[in-house]
Amino acid sequence: MSVLYDLRILIEKKIAADGLDEVTVKGEIGLRTGRLVSLISVRTPDDPVAIAKMRQAAKDLLNISI
């Protein structure tokens, strides 16, 4: 399993729960982290820097700690 992928799933759940515009939020996270969220899969290797950026972006944009 990939931590990055888990984070992606948590983020998508939060977006759906809050009824947010998925494309826009994922776009903003992608711009902040330098990664396309849609391309993160179970086979995506974990990168500590990318994970930290993803968590920070989720906190800033969705107000969740993951």
């Binding site: 998925e22 494309v23 826009t24 939020v25 994922k26 776009g27 903003e28 996270i29 992608g30 711009l31 396309l36 969220v37 849609s38």
Partner: peptide
């Protein structure tokens, strides 16, 4: 900026 963000988001 909006379009760029949306493209990155998958639109």
């Amino acid at each position: 900026i909006v379009v760029a963000t949306r493209v990155v988001g998958g639109d």
